[in-house]
Design a protein around this nucleic acid. Structure first.
Length: 202
DNA sequence: AGACTGATATTCT
DNA sequence: GAATATCAGTCTA
């Protein structure tokens, strides 16, 4: 799978060939500040987590199953799974070997606010996309999107630069809690949880 | 602010 | 049966 090369003017990062075929922690960091849309509804990515194919916390760690099959497919595609039997979670498959992905944990909502408010049943903008399950409900992401390529409808990605990137340990895990593979945008009001860690780079 | 709890699908033991 | 990359509601403070 080859990603589109964007002819963006200025200093914005671009979707270049090979963007996805790197370590998921690099991809997760670089995605902060980008925007993701599903059927033109979505916003700016402000929180991500990396899952590496050799990472005990990764769904792919114990091999391919029906659920995680998309993680073993081509990079630059979506991996969508059901979490706790209730919510959907959206990942971007990446890495230099099969089985790595980046979990999209939070967005600053920017487009399709009314659709998101209706789907979420809430009007407060901070309640729309401030968590991996919430944003999937707001963007109507479900099993239908599992395995779909990210640079074609209904998905759309738009490069963008972060104000600054925070880094810290991942959330909700019992394994590999020591690796700091959670990334967050400096100053965002939509993080799923606070990130007090020092800034990396902009 | 923080602790607890229920909802509920899939996978693994 | 237990664990899980979660969220909303409810309780106590």
């Amino acid at each position: 799978m080859v990603s589109v090369v964007e002819a963006h003017s200025g200093r914005l990062p671009t979707i270049r060939q090979g963007f996805w075929t790197r370590h998921p922690a690099e991809v997760a960091r670089d995605l902060i500040g980008w925007s993701v849309f599903v059927d033109r509804v979505g916003g700016r990515i402000v929180e991500t987590e990396a899952y590496h194919h050799e990472d005990p916390a990764s769904h792919s760690f114990n091999g391919r199953t029906d659920r995680n099959a998309a993680m073993f497919g081509p990079p630059g595609h979506a991996y969508v799974y059901r979490s706790y039997g209730v919510h959907w979670c959206l990942n971007f498959v990446c890495g230099d070997a099969p089985g790595s992905a980046v979990l999209i944990r939070a967005l600053d909502p920017t487009q399709g606010l009314e659709a998101m408010q209706a789907r979420r049943g809430r009007s407060d903008l901070r309640a729309l996309c401030s968590g991996p399950g919430k944003l999937c409900q707001a963007l109507a992401v479900s099993r239908d999107h599992d395995g779909k390529v990210l640079d074609a409808a209904p998905f759309a990605l738009e490069p963008g630069a972060p104000v600054g990137v925070l880094q810290g340990p991942r959330i909700g895990l019992s394994k590999a809690v020591d690796v700091a593979w959670r990334f967050g945008e400096v100053g965002s009001l939509n993080l799923s949880r606070a990130m007090p860690q020092p800034a990396l780079k902009a």
